[in-house]
């Protein structure tokens, strides 16, 4: 069992309170993604789980064991960093085996475990190279290899793909998801990229200003966001959030509707608007519309729909896909 339990954790740097009071359960064997905008405290939270930052108050348990004040190496965790943090003067083999060497593991066992990790990550031919002789993707694999050999209870990833180019990022995303199934371990992954969160997570934790906004499965967050922040953060293009008379008519402060949940017609509809800009993505077309009553809206339609900037169109939000966020924090769907 490697459930991570965070209870009433508070973190301050001097007079700045980064995380006021946070509690969270990361289930055993889950792939949990902490996501939120820059400065929301997600990396700080991960570093507190790792033991790289002291908690100001509260407690952290891993697999039922209180590790609040334990050293990072005594927590049964392994961490992969954004900048890879490989040891530049060591070979790939030495990098991967370094933690085991420090733990005084017998050399034969170190070799066996390094070889096993190298096989999983296809690093075999690179074992005698130094980090500077590797590409970005290979470096990140080595960093992952370094975490695998320690056989940790929990893997921690701090934006590990953000230094890679788009194509490699997609490839590594798939590899990480496969690795999770193969290792069957608890993984906590920090990112600011909601696409990574949606595609990899079993559980997404959305944070803002050190406060958890919502926790749930990716499609639950997509279909039933608790507040406008979550609604706007999950989904690409982001949800249209409309305030003013249109929301007030429905008894809400904010009305939310996703771009893909708006039907478009040239003749009739609930809201009239003029196309400002159209992006043809092939499978889809994303249109940016200036609507008379609703303000700026984004609409996503199938790629075969012909649209041009300057055209007038009518839009109708699909029934059952409207999110109504009230002043008191309650939310209803219509």
């Amino acid at each position: 069992m490697a459930e991570v339990q965070i209870t009433g954790v508070n973190k301050t740097f001097g007079t700045v309170e980064v995380i006021p009071n946070l509690s969270l359960t990361v289930p055993n064997r889950s792939f949990s993604v902490l996501v939120g905008p820059s400065g929301c405290g997600k990396s700080t939270l991960l570093r507190m789980i790792a033991g790289l930052e002291e908690v100001s108050a509260g407690s952290i348990t891993i697999g039922g064991e209180d590790v609040t004040h334990a050293e990072p190496s005594d927590r049964g965790i392994a961490m992969v960093f954004q900048s890879y943090a490989l040891y530049p003067h060591m070979t790939v083999r030495q990098n991967i085996g370094f933690g085991l060497k420090l733990a005084k593991t017998p050399k034969a066992e170190i070799d066996a475990r390094v070889d096993e990790a190298a096989e999983i990550l296809q690093l075999g031919p690179l074992l005698d190279r130094k980090p500077k002789q590797l590409s970005g993707g290979q470096r990140q694999r080595v960093a992952i290899g370094r975490s695998i050999v320690r056989k940790p209870k929990v893997f921690l990833f701090d934006e590990p793909l953000s230094n890679l180019d788009a194509a490699l990022r997609t490839q590594m995303r798939v590899e990480l998801a496969e690795l999770h199934s193969k290792l069957d371990a608890t993984m906590i992954y920090v990112t600011h990229d909601q696409v990574e969160a949606m595609t990899m997570a079993d559980q997404i934790v959305i944070m803002k200003a050190g406060i958890i906004q919502q926790v749930g499965r990716p499609m639950d967050l997509y279909n039933a966001p608790d507040n406008p922040f979550v609604a706007g953060f999950i989904g690409s293009p982001k949800m249209n959030l409309i305030e003013g008379p249109i929301a007030a008519e429905k008894g809400a402060k904010v009305l939310g509707v996703r771009p893909e949940h708006i039907d478009v017609s040239p003749d009739a509809g609930a809201w009239k608007g003029r196309l400002r800009h159209v992006e043809h993505l092939g499978s889809d077309t994303v249109a940016y519309v200036e609507a008379e009553q609703a303000g700026s809206l984004t609409v996503r339609v199938p790629g075969e729909v012909n649209m041009n900037a300057g055209d007038d169109i009518f839009m109708t939000p699909r029934a059952g896909s409207i999110h109504l966020f009230a002043d008191d924090g309650s939310v209803t769907r219509a």
Binding site: A50, G51, S73, M79, F81, A85, L86, L102, R146, R150
Partner: peptide
């Protein structure tokens, strides 16, 4: 020196003194 290097070494079980001998000086 990148702070993450020290963080990674700490996770691997390195203390300040070991980090000095094993990383800071060789680099």
């Amino acid at each position: 020196m990148p702070e993450e290097l020290f963080d990674a070494a700490r996770v691997d079980g390195c203390g300040y003194i070991q980090f000095f001998w094993r990383f800071t000086l060789p680099l």
